[in-house]
């Protein structure tokens, strides 16, 4: 079976599995739907649905205290919800792997997504997150793998930015 461009969430899932990720926290997001489904179906991964993204920053810290690797999935709007809680990862050097689907940057239907989408990268940089941006499906596995190594090898924060160009525009069926 050859890889299809739309299979990139499966590449992310495989990277998380290879990286030994045991806890996956998320606020549901259309761009992450397939990855969330894969994680929920996996017996070795504990999936934790959150009410807000900052909960996931704290969860990942607790996971690391106990020896588990965690990943946090969110949409770009969720980055704003995390800012103060990211102080926990920065002050204690907790490893934090964030996989972020972009909104508000490319063929965006909803103008209310633009304000946070337009400042996602600089906010993350101010919070000392290393940015790993993905534009093409073929890049997903390699870039995500580098981010995993960076986060858990150096106990640092990384944001894998899954561009709106990669995800494709949201389809409104109504």
């Amino acid at each position: 079976m050859s890889a299809q461009p739309g299979d990139w969430p499966d590449r992310l899932f495989e990277t998380l599995k290879r990286g030994g990720i045991r806890q996956v926290a998320y606020v549901p997001d259309a761009g992450h739907a397939r990855l969330i489904d894969r994680c929920r179906a996996d017996d070795e991964i504990r999936d934790v649905a959150l009410t807000t993204e900052e909960e996931g920053v704290a969860l990942a810290a607790g996971a690391w205290l106990g020896g588990d690797r965690a990943a946090l999935l969110m949409q770009s709007s969720g980055v704003g919800n995390c800012i103060n809680m990211l102080s926990l990862a920065r002050a204690c050097r907790f490893p934090l792997l964030m996989l972020i689907t972009m909104r508000g940057e490319w063929e965006e239907f909803n103008p209310w997504q633009v304000p946070m989408g337009s400042i996602t990268d600089p906010v993350l940089e101010l919070c000392e997150a290393e940015i790993f941006r993905v534009l093409e499906p073929s890049e997903v596995a390699g870039i995500a793998q580098r981010a995993v190594q960076y986060v858990f090898g150096q106990e640092r924060i990384a944001a894998v930015i899954l561009s709106q160009q990669l995800i494709g525009k949201k389809v409104w069926t109504k």
Binding site: V48, A58, L59, G62, L65, N84, L88, A91
Partner: peptide
């Protein structure tokens, strides 16, 4: 003891991640 000097609002979630891991 993992004392918190910040992360207000995060204590319970740190506990959850830790409880799952241990």
């Amino acid at each position: 003891n993992f004392y918190l000097w910040g992360a207000m609002g995060g204590a319970a979630m740190i506990g959850l991640g830790l409880a799952i891991a241990q």
